[in-house]
Amino acid sequence: MSAGAAVRTLHIAIDHPSAVQSAADQARSAARGMPGALPDQAAVLASELASNIVKHARNGAVFVQRSPLGDGLDVVAVDSGPGMPDVARSLVDGYSTTKTIGAGLGAARRIATDFVIRSEAGFGTLVHARLAAPDTPRVAGAPGALCLPADGEDESGDGYAVAEHDGARTVLMIDGLGHGPEAATAAQRAERTFLANPAAPLADILTALHKALRHTRGAAVAALRTTGGQAEFCGIGNVRAVTLSSQGIHRQLTGHAGIVGYNLPRPRSRFVELSEHTTVVLYTDGIDHRWTYAPTDARLTLPPVLLAASLAHTHRRRRDDATILALGPHLGMR
């Protein structure tokens, strides 16, 4: 079994040239403890991606965090710029539209262990660069997740946890009531309780969380389990789940009324059929649900890591903690 709890995300708004150095510094700090030159390489990655936003785009951001599953570092850049007319050419060393040496994206791709880019006119550019030691196992179908505190808070009252077991993947998402340290305490206790027995029936997981959170503020909680061509959803409170594909939004699910740790109705599961092209997105109310009204074709076809970053960048409510997690097709369906 592999498992991981929420990794809090660093958000660097790229709204001024000075933000490039901030992105580099924060990436190096997040990579502290990784072997060899990886912390310095993380700083270069973040610097190159941030510089690209400053030169070519607007309304950009860089997200930095340790990978949700596996031992690595994720650096994700997103902007609302004009997009790239020729992505392949932009990755060639020496190509530049700003009369610079043109090494940015090409250098980032060389440094990164994994590198994914999507760009489209009118939509902007998104880049995911993952950095890991050479002997680090790759996580097949890794989820994309971001966990961001409300503006002015040092820690998030949201949380999540992911576990893979017996051919299934189970995800827990928590939104501690309010925000700040007390909400964070509830979220972290829920993560630990879940990870002690993530293979239990989902209703039993919520019942165990209810007992564990009795002396906290309580939380809205959703548990999701994907197995082959099916997803099971069991939730209490305002944590939402959406299934989508390139054809559009298919299903939207919200938890039943209640508060885990305070007032728990009988947990009931709902089931959704998944195709091999389905993505599942879970998110707390720090992400505005109106993103589901008319998502563009460009957004619907993003891989999980870029989809999560795109939604957090454009639909985050900054006065609240915000967490989003996207799962691609389940491992057993590949």
Rank of each mutant, 00 (worst) to 15 (best):
R225C: 10
R217K: 07
V239C: 10
A163F: 05
R189H: 13
G248I: 08
F194N: 08
R169T: 13
A200C: 04
T227R: 15
A200S: 06
Q230D: 05
P201D: 11
I259G: 10
R192T: 14
S269H: 05
P265Q: 10
T278K: 02
E164N: 04
G229I: 11
R217L: 00
G261F: 03
S246Q: 14
T278G: 04
P198V: 08
G237C: 01
V239G: 06
D175E: 04
F271D: 01
A183N: 04
F233N: 02
H179D: 04
F194M: 06
L274T: 06
G229Q: 15
E182M: 03
T243Q: 02
F194W: 06
G167L: 12
G258V: 07
V239N: 03
G167D: 05
T278S: 15
Q188P: 00
F271S: 14
A231H: 08
Q230C: 07
L253W: 05
S269T: 14
P201T: 11
I174Y: 02
A163P: 06
S269L: 06
A190M: 11
A187Y: 02
A208I: 00
V260S: 09
A190E: 13
P267D: 06
T254M: 03
V260P: 01
N263Q: 12
E182N: 10
L274V: 11
H277I: 11
I249L: 04
C234M: 10
G261L: 09
R189A: 15
G237D: 02
I249V: 14
K211V: 12
